[in-house]
Amino acid sequence: MNETRAIDRLDTQPRFTDQEAIRLNRMFRGAETEEWLRAVFEGDLVGDIALVSSFGAESAALLHLVSRIDASIPVLFLDTGKHFPETLAYRDELTDRFGLNRVDLYPDLADLEARDNTGLRWSYDPDGCCELRKVKPLEIALARFDASLTGRKAFQSSTRANLPRFEVDTADAQGRLKINPLIDWDAQRIAAYFEEHDLPRHPLIERGFASIGCSPCTRAIKPGEDPRSGRWAGWDKVECGIHKPGEEPFL
């Protein structure tokens, strides 16, 4: 596995503006996913890019798609220390099968000792736990990249229903671009992609888990619930902080 490090940037200008995100959305309007994604990669249209993956319920589709185009693209995985054992085994299986350039990211040990020495912060402050174990490590790792790929899909929840393919990350002061290749894929298309390419499913799916994060804050969903209703159940929380629920779409 490779190791990432934060590097200082000499420029202070935003990497991307809202207008540039709008232009990219218009440029590839109506294009098939693999077609426009290949054009972005091979044309070097967005600079240095990384894929951020949780190796969750549907992650194999995007990981497989990207690996077919360019397997050298770094795949950033946040090892929070709270994942299901099944997720870690699935991560290793997909890494080997697709030949992924996986980079494991870890929370800062001094931060954990100072703010979560019992490991139970998730039980009374899930936002703080996510900040320590996900948001901060990813922020450091992404400092060397201009854009990141996500696995978000519109059908997953109402907060993701209107997201575009390309957007400027509102949580990033440097104006990093966030790209959502599967945003317009529905559950049927994802299932068909898994079938077509004989992709393995996350082992927790058969136990009713539709969206899979850290084990203390993830439950199986009930019939009729949206796929992400099993995340942070009982809390007024729909995202870990990596993605902001109020991000505005650029068409």
Rank of each mutant, 00 (worst) to 15 (best):
residue 3 E to I: 13
residue 7 I to C: 11
residue 10 L to R: 14
residue 11 D to T: 09
residue 12 T to I: 08
residue 19 Q to G: 12
residue 22 I to S: 11
residue 22 I to A: 14
residue 23 R to H: 12
residue 25 N to Q: 03
residue 26 R to K: 14
residue 27 M to P: 02
residue 27 M to K: 15
residue 28 F to E: 01
residue 28 F to L: 01
residue 28 F to G: 05
residue 34 E to D: 15
residue 36 W to H: 10
residue 36 W to S: 06
residue 38 R to A: 14
residue 42 E to C: 05
residue 43 G to I: 08
residue 43 G to W: 09
residue 43 G to A: 04
residue 43 G to N: 08
residue 43 G to T: 03
residue 44 D to K: 15
residue 46 V to C: 14
residue 47 G to I: 07
residue 47 G to S: 07
residue 47 G to R: 06
residue 49 I to G: 04
residue 50 A to G: 05
residue 53 S to V: 03
residue 59 S to G: 13
residue 61 A to L: 07
residue 64 H to K: 03
residue 64 H to N: 08
residue 66 V to K: 03
residue 67 S to F: 05
residue 68 R to N: 09
residue 69 I to P: 01
residue 71 A to M: 03
residue 72 S to W: 04
residue 73 I to K: 01
residue 74 P to D: 01
residue 74 P to S: 08
residue 75 V to E: 03
residue 78 L to V: 06
residue 80 T to H: 02
residue 81 G to R: 03
residue 86 E to P: 05
residue 87 T to Y: 09
residue 88 L to M: 04
residue 89 A to P: 06
residue 89 A to F: 04
residue 93 E to L: 14
residue 96 D to S: 13
residue 97 R to L: 05
residue 97 R to D: 00
residue 101 N to R: 15
residue 103 V to A: 02
residue 108 D to C: 14
residue 108 D to E: 12
residue 108 D to Q: 10
residue 110 A to M: 12
residue 110 A to L: 13
residue 111 D to R: 13
residue 112 L to P: 08
residue 114 A to N: 14
residue 116 D to F: 02
residue 117 N to G: 12
residue 118 T to Y: 01
residue 123 S to P: 04
residue 125 D to I: 00
residue 126 P to A: 02
residue 126 P to T: 01
residue 128 G to P: 02
residue 129 C to S: 11
residue 132 L to P: 06
residue 133 R to V: 10
residue 137 P to Q: 01
residue 142 L to N: 06
residue 156 Q to S: 09
residue 159 T to L: 08
residue 159 T to C: 07
residue 162 N to A: 14
residue 164 P to D: 12
residue 165 R to Y: 10
residue 165 R to A: 11
residue 166 F to R: 02
residue 167 E to R: 05
residue 167 E to C: 04
residue 169 D to Y: 00
residue 169 D to C: 02
residue 171 A to W: 00
residue 171 A to V: 11
residue 172 D to M: 10
residue 174 Q to R: 15
residue 174 Q to M: 13
residue 175 G to H: 12
residue 175 G to E: 12
residue 176 R to N: 10
residue 177 L to D: 03
residue 178 K to S: 01
residue 179 I to Y: 03
residue 182 L to Q: 11
residue 182 L to F: 13
residue 183 I to F: 01
residue 184 D to T: 13
residue 184 D to W: 05
residue 185 W to C: 08
residue 187 A to R: 12
residue 187 A to D: 11
residue 189 R to G: 14
residue 190 I to M: 06
residue 190 I to K: 00
residue 193 Y to H: 10
residue 194 F to T: 08
residue 194 F to S: 05
residue 199 L to T: 14
residue 199 L to K: 11
residue 202 H to G: 09
residue 202 H to W: 05
residue 203 P to Y: 00
residue 206 E to C: 09
residue 206 E to F: 07
residue 209 F to I: 07
residue 211 S to W: 07
residue 211 S to K: 05
residue 213 G to Y: 00
residue 214 C to S: 07
residue 215 S to H: 13
residue 217 C to V: 00
residue 217 C to R: 02
residue 222 K to L: 15
residue 222 K to R: 15
residue 224 G to H: 05
residue 224 G to Q: 11
residue 226 D to Y: 10
residue 228 R to D: 04
residue 232 W to G: 04
residue 232 W to T: 06
residue 232 W to L: 06
residue 233 A to V: 10
residue 233 A to H: 13
residue 236 D to F: 07
residue 236 D to Q: 09
residue 237 K to F: 04
residue 239 E to P: 03
residue 239 E to Y: 07
residue 240 C to W: 05
residue 240 C to M: 04
residue 242 I to E: 00
residue 246 G to H: 08
residue 248 E to S: 10
residue 249 P to N: 10
residue 250 F to H: 11
